[in-house]
Amino acid sequence: MNENKTKLTEEEKKLFGDLMPEELDEIISSGLNRRHFMKLMGLASAGLLASHLIGAEQLFARSAEIGDIADLAPAAIENGINVSFKVNNTAKKVLIDSRATLLDTLRERLDLTGSKKGCDHGQCGACTVIVDGKRVLSCLTLAATCEGKSVITIEGLAKDNELNPMQAAFLKHDGFQCGFCTPGQICSAVALMKEAKEGQASFVTADVRQNQQSVILSDEEIAERMSGNICRCGAYPNIVAAIKEAQTGKNVEQTWLFAG
């Protein structure tokens, strides 16, 4: 790890000083590692404030940016391809196996494990990332086809310690339970905001012949447009509320539907 870039800000020093005082020296001298992260996760489940955790995740995203890719390369690469692309606005050049999916490249080579491998067959949406402004499934995208493209993952949505409004809305509305589908849900929802702004219709939009300026998303529109992201915990009402709030900027109450 490059020491320069993993240097902690005063804010971060305070954060880790508060949470893991015994690890602080190690983090300052040699950067963050997975053990620190697991410990952080443990603290989170014990009631750590979510905002602290996001600060820590930001630091992880930053340290991953300068991870020495050559060191992470697997022992054998068949039919190697050099791919240059941008990940979270940082230029990357990586030698990959021709079979490597974008998802595996992000997770195994670039150490960005926010994007999740759920089904690995394009049925669950947990791997959703944003490529050149559009949401796609990274498990069905070969990394080799990403030459020159710009990829945004969940790690790239916040600006420093400031959450993307969609992330904040998911936190506020508990738009998750186990959290596994959440990175995909949030990336999908962020891209959805742009689609709605551009007036793109969905299958439940009334009349596509009228070119709409921008779409205010109803519950039904959100459900249809987010149907590519499955949540096995069933946090859907909260996810819908979070997306509504992120779009309108107004407080949204959850709508609970009970069988009549």
Binding site: G122, G125, T128, K134, R135, V136, L137, L140, T141, S188, A191, L192, E195, A201, S202, F203, D207, V208, R209, N211, R225, S227, G228, N229
Partner: peptide, 26 residues
């Protein structure tokens, strides 16, 4: 595409009935 939406709305609807937003983008 504006011409698909205005002149061939049947095609627009059939495409939007299929798969998910992510898959239709790919």
């Amino acid at each position: 595409h504006p011409l698909v939406e205005s002149r061939y709305p049947l095609l627009n609807r059939a495409i939007l009935a299929g798969a998910s937003a992510q898959i239709r983008n790919m």
